[in-house]
Nucleic acid binder design. Structure first.
Length: 259
DNA sequence: AGCATTGTTTCACA
DNA sequence: TTGTGAAACAATGC
């Protein structure tokens, strides 16, 4: 269930358990997850090397490796998780294993493994991933750049913060959570938000991200359980409203988030 | 059976 | 240029 917090947990897992282990074999046979690389191409680039660092911007992750070869890009997509030696990153709920959901695997010399486990196969593994179209990370962007990038345009604010080229890392659930915390109507035009509203939204998003990383993922958010029919606002009890905004199902408080 | 789904990319179109 | 909506991708769960 990867948005920025899950990806950060996966990155931390790789950093703590996946580095400095010699890669002796690579299973890159899933041509969809590894596209456009051909079978064996990623293996040839990685065998004999060791991962030396794990980085993240938004929902994109990449690993440096020893001996000056290409960088390994990992994107969890809609349902991907990183598993190392049976330990999962990203989500506290253990994924059902051993159902043929392991789409990409590094075998280490010490007998351990790093695996991309993904039921739906929308995750991606790439050499030298292109990150040019990714905006600043949503967890790290400063107030000034946030106001400048987010507070413009005629489209709805929710679509704006989910645009990975504007800021990187906010997905559908995190967007609803942040807008709810900031008491901002998701339908409002991004360019209409006042300076203090933009500052408040930035703080709300950062707090939501921080909490989600600590608790285990975006689904631990305060308003997430209210995103259902007959749901009510956890703060004021008013009915939650639902609509499609920015192409995604959106829920917000009918009383606190309007105008 | 039918609908929805946490992500990304592409395309037609206004 | 900016934005929108839909479709496609693959597969699962309710």
């Amino acid at each position: 269930m990867p948005e920025l917090p899950e990806v950060e947990r996966a990155r931390a897992l790789i950093q703590s358990r996946g580095l400095r282990r010699r890669i002796v074999a690579v299973d890159d046979r899933d041509g969809y997850v590894c596209r456009p690389h051909g079978p064996g191409e990623i293996a040839d680039a990685l065998v004999g090397r060791e991962l030396t660092a794990a980085h993240r911007r938004g929902k994109a992750m990449w690993c440096e490796a020893s001996d000056d070869g290409p960088v390994l890009g990992l994107h969890l997509g809609m349902s991907g998780r990183i598993v190392i030696d049976g330990v999962e990153g990203g989500d506290p709920k253990p994924a059902a294993a051993g159902r043929g959901w392991d789409r990409f695997t590094l075998d280490f010399e010490d007998g351990g493994h790093l695996t991309m486990r993904d039921p739906r196969r929308l995750s991606r593994v790439r050499l030298e991933p292109n990150l040019d179209r990714l905006g600043p990370d949503a967890a790290r962007i400063a107030a000034g750049p946030f106001r400048e990038r987010v507070g413009r345009g005629t489209g709805p604010i929710k679509a704006r913060i989910m645009d990975q080229a504007v800021i990187a890392g906010v997905g559908n659930l995190l967007a609803d959570e942040g807008l709810w915390r900031a008491r901002v109507d998701p339908r409002r035009a991004a360019g209409d938000l006042a300076r203090d509203e933009l500052d408040g939204l930035r703080r709300a998003l950062r707090a939501a991200i921080r909490d989600a990383i600590a608790k285990g993922g975006v689904h631990t958010g305060k308003v997430i359980p209210a995103r259902r029919r007959d749901g009510s606002c956890p703060r004021c009890g008013a009915a939650m409203r639902r609509a499609t905004i920015g192409g995604r199902t959106t829920w917000w408080c009918s009383a606190e988030q309007q105008g």
